[in-house]
Design a protein around this nucleic acid. Structure first.
Lengths: 131, 131
DNA sequence: GTATATGCAAACAATTTGCACGCCT
DNA sequence: AGGCGTGCAAATTGTTTGCATATAC
């Protein structure tokens, strides 16, 4: 694989944010460093970096989102604002049961906890308690 | 909500398959019953049925897939063929920790076990053992 | 020098939407 | 009768790709 400054910039952008950006956001950030970078280049390099194992991706609300954190971790997703929050929560499942009952070879898991974030959760303030 | 034959047909299609179909598949099935049904109608009704709670949806490889099984259940996803298999596997996570550490109000979870299905998993036949 | 990576724009795929008409209630 | 639901087609959005040029090695 040949060196490319564009790819280097894209990698640094994805790996230095926890915002789980989509290609367009990465493109806009990249333009700040490389004025004439093209969206196609961003898409191409995100794919390369993913197949590299440098970054990860997942589908969310009709877009692909990228994650520079390739450590095993899961996400909280707010149904109100869509924010994705990294967690160190571990999830347990019965691996042996899957192998045995479904003849399936598990490699990885994708785990999202859907709900409401700090800002959007139902408040349990005095005000509500009074209701 | 007014009755609509189209919606009825669409609901029955989604609720009587375990294939986790996308809109286009549903559209093609629906055409067998209603020759001139339109794709827009299918999309509109899938959304309505989802907001109803009649069906569920999730994003998978740049498409929305629908699931007539609204019971709490999780999926195995084969990286080779993309098949999605329903399971009754329960996953455990520390709900209290999420509420406390992240001030998050969890409602639902989305859980996919990624790996290789029966057909595509690494074989452990005599042949391989001999290698 | 050669082949890979890029910029650009056109092509694609999935989904949404505006509008006039039809059908439930 | 009134308004929600439909069919149709055009519009949008996210992503991919072909091609000529630029650049890493």
């Amino acid at each position: 694989m040949r060196f490319s400054y564009q790819r280097e910039v894209i990698k640094n952008i994805v790996c230095s944010t926890k915002s789980h950006p989509n290609a367009d956001w990465v493109f806009n950030e990249a333009k700040k460093k490389i004025k004439n970078i093209s969206l196609g280049t961003v898409y191409r390099n995100l794919k390369i970096l993913e197949s590299n194992g440098t970054i990860k991706s997942f589908h969310d609300s009709s877009q692909v989102r990228y994650d520079g954190n390739v450590e095993d971790h899961h996400h909280l997703k707010c149904i109100e604002c869509g924010i994705l929050i990294d967690t160190d929560i571990k999830s347990d499942y019965d691996r042996e049961k899957i192998i045995k009952n479904y003849e399936f070879e598990p490699n990885d898991i994708e785990f999202f906890i859907i709900g409401k974030c700090k800002k959007h959760k139902t408040q349990t303030t005095k005000k509500n308690k009074e209701l």
